[in-house]
């Protein structure tokens, strides 16, 4: 569950509104998943809505930055972060194609991922964007506004929230690695046992051919 606070305000009306809506969608979805009598279609639809809304929001932000002629150095980096996020979300896409019971677990992982990512991204990159847009509006050149960021101070509570979000993204990825490693080991065992079932006949075959060779040499 995510609770909105002023820490997340970028003071750009459209952006703040969309961020709030995103968190609301996330909270609704995580509540939905916890209910027992949830239908597959419901979860599936909420996920699609969430992803669709997120994509829209990222595009709106990029448009806003271009309109305000924000410095290219920021725009490039900001866009890269968005794209990398969309790539990662795409990796969850098998959720919508799997209509089994595991959908709740997968949806939970997706919700965690998007929530942590938004916290990290809003408090870090979006805040830097908003600081530049304010300065550009006040008359600075985009280059000046970018160079000013060096001295942009963030209050410690925000820093901690942001770093914790990245730590959680990291820990979740590590956890997924561990699960994958277990799966790899299991698959390896299956392969070995299948190969050992094949082996007896392979041995027979080679014995046969060895006998043939023997006979041939004689």
């Amino acid at each position: 569950m995510f609770i909105w606070s002023d820490t997340f305000n970028t003071n750009i009306e459209l952006v703040d509104l969309q961020h709030k809506n995103l968190f609301q969608l996330l909270n609704k979805l995580s509540l939905n998943i916890k209910q027992d009598n949830i239908s597959y279609e419901d979860v599936n639809n909420s996920i699609k809505l969430l992803i669709h809304y997120t994509e829209n929001h990222l595009r709106d932000e990029e448009l806003l930055m271009m309109e305000s002629r924000i410095d290219k150095r920021h725009l490039t980096k900001h866009r890269m972060e968005h794209n990398s996020f969309l790539y990662d979300v795409g990796l969850f896409s098998d959720i919508t194609s799997s209509d089994d019971r595991r959908i709740t677990r997968k949806a939970t992982n997706l919700v965690r991922f998007i929530t942590y990512w938004l916290i990290f991204h809003i408090l870090g990159t979006d805040m830097l964007m908003s600081a530049q847009l304010t300065n550009i509006k006040a008359g600075m050149s985009p280059q000046q506004a970018f160079d000013m960021l060096k001295d942009h101070k963030i209050d410690p509570a925000t820093v901690n929230l942001m770093l914790d979000a990245i730590i959680n993204l990291w820990l979740d990825a590590k956890e997924r690695c561990n699960q994958m490693e277990i799966k790899v080991t299991e698959l390896q065992k299956t392969i070995e046992s299948l190969q050992s079932k094949q082996e007896p006949s392979t041995i027979n075959q080679s014995e046969d051919s060895a006998l043939e060779m023997d006979w041939f040499i004689k």
């Binding site: 990662d88 990245i166 990291w170 990825a173 590590k174 997924r176 690695c177 994958m180 490693e181 790899v184």
Partner: peptide, 13 residues
């Protein structure tokens, strides 16, 4: 650290 883990996940997958 997060990126490295993600990459390892991708390789394992």
């Amino acid at each position: 650290l997060w990126l490295e883990s993600k990459e390892r996940c991708a390789q394992l997958e």
